[in-house]
């Protein structure tokens, strides 16, 4: 792979990652959100694979396959089934409307670029230039967590957040050992599975999966 080609692929992957994150803010349909999440997982996997091929590191390619299996296939399937089981179709009333959320995501992306300046140093290489995108994905994932009321939307926000973290770790540390990535990915899968069960219970107890019902549990 040529150097220019490497940069092109890297940039495209990063672009898809942040685009899917921003679109999450805009989409209200849960099934659409799950599809976007799968796409994002695939983009993350492609990013890891690209770096692995460029560095000729078989371990990184293994990580890419693992990420593809978990984040692009397993988690979306689990989430899709949860959505179907709980009967939730749409995120009806997010805390801020999509227009405001999109504007906010622009602000957050700016903050991410400003904040990563001191980290990047004077002459960043192609991989490091994509770090602000990772930070932006993390912040947008957080924003999803903050604004969505449905339990499944929360899960989606959580996975977006985790994708951002994985991306930053990959780009700054120049790759993650297979063991670490294995642990983290399985952790995320486990969290998703547990939260799925909790969502089922939530539906069972309250008849809906709106997290605002949970405030009554305080004290």
């Amino acid at each position: 792979m040529t150097d220019a080609g490497f940069t092109q692929v890297l940039g495209s992957c990063a672009g898809v990652l942040i685009l899917t994150a921003v679109l999450q803010l805009w989409r209200r349909s849960l099934s659409g959100s799950v599809t976007l999440l799968a796409l994002q997982g695939a983009a993350l996997s492609a990013l890891i694979g690209t770096i692995g091929v460029a560095a000729a590191d078989p371990e990184l390619i293994g990580v890419a396959v693992l990420v593809l299996a978990i984040k692009a296939v397993a988690i979306p399937i689990v989430l899709g089934r949860t959505a179907a089981a709980t009967g939730a179709r749409r995120e009806d009333a997010p805390r801020i409307n999509p227009t405001a959320a999109l504007l906010l995501s622009a602000v957050l992306t700016t903050v991410a670029y400003l904040a990563s300046r001191p980290i990047l140093g004077a002459a960043p290489d192609a991989a490091q230039r994509a770090v602000p995108v990772g930070i932006a994905v993390v912040l947008i994932g957080f924003l999803l967590l903050l604004t969505r009321r449905q339990a499944i939307s929360q899960l989606i926000g959580f996975v977006v957040l985790d994708n951002g973290i994985a991306m930053i770790a990959l780009l700054t540390a120049g790759g993650v050992p297979l063991v670490v990535e294995l642990g983290v990915s399985l952790d995320v899968l486990l969290v998703v599975l547990i939260l799925r069960v909790l969502t089922g219970r939530l539906k069972h107890v309250f008849g809906a999966t709106d997290l605002d019902d949970l405030t009554e549990l305080h004290d």
Binding site: L143, L145, L146, D212, L214, D219
Partner: peptide, 18 residues
């Protein structure tokens, strides 16, 4: 008791640090 509020605290803290 609102989960969103707690998340908001972390979010604001993260932003401030950044």
């Amino acid at each position: 008791g609102s989960m969103h509020r707690y998340l908001g605290f972390s979010f604001v803290a993260l932003l401030v640090v950044l």
